[in-house]
Amino acid sequence: MTIRFEGIEKTYMVYARPQDRLWEWVTRSQRHRVHVALTGVDFKVQAGETFGLIGENGAGKSTLLKIAAGTIRPTRGQVTQEGRVAALLELGAGFHPEESGYDNIRFMAALHGLEGVAMEDFIVRATAFSELTPETLERPVKTYSSGMFMRLAFAAATAIDPDVLIVDEALSVGDLHFQKKSLNRILELRERGATVLFCSHNLYQVRSLCQRAAWVHGGRIQAIGATEDVVTAYESHERRRYAHLRVESNEAAEKKDAAPAATTSSGAPS
């Protein structure tokens, strides 16, 4: 039930043109640029712990979650986790829009290798969470509203009763009802002793849910430890990052006072 990252490094090979990969394969000489997405990631998420990942967009959070979920392999290092893993990297990934809600749930069950009674059990749990009527579940998923779709996707992803749950930003979409419901489901899994690893830009959520957190910055773990410390460090970094904006807008305001006819568009650089 633990997730252990040991010396994880992830580099991507970037090819300028598709034929470069072919030439590299044939001639065995390097024709790509190496992009380092993650390096030196070395920590362990304890069993039953709720662990948060924070950081800017493009810092490597999603890459780390994908490595944890097993959809991509690390270039170096090793990731191990025990127990049943459910990954919610994107709500509804793998759903077929032409198929009915029931058929999509069945497919998710098959993805976990369930059949027969275990599959029926899975369907019952997923439908209960989704709050969709049997009639609706018979219809193709493409006819659903986005709220219905998200409820079904979240239901199908967590109905496995995972020991390890990996969630990427899924909680920040949807209306309040959905957010509350999915949060409750995560708390319920946590009560049962599941390990939860998730990333979020909602620092309030991270503070209230996680025992520990890590701040990912530029492909490295910038800080790791008790949630409050890490989140505070990240917040002060963000404040520093935008400090110049405040200075500039102050200057602009001063300028405006001095010469009211001057341009006013410099006040809010984006």
């Binding site: 690390p74 270039t75 170096r76 191990t80 993805l111 290798g113 059949e115």
Partner: peptide
């Protein structure tokens, strides 16, 4: 090429043969 130097052992998706068999047939 990195594949030759990979030391990664991804046990991230521990799937046994039976699981694959179920999925293959269902799919």
């Amino acid at each position: 090429r990195p594949e030759s130097s990979v030391t990664a052992v991804s046990s991230a998706a521990p799937r046994n043969a039976r699981q694959l068999w179920v999925l293959w047939r269902y799919w």
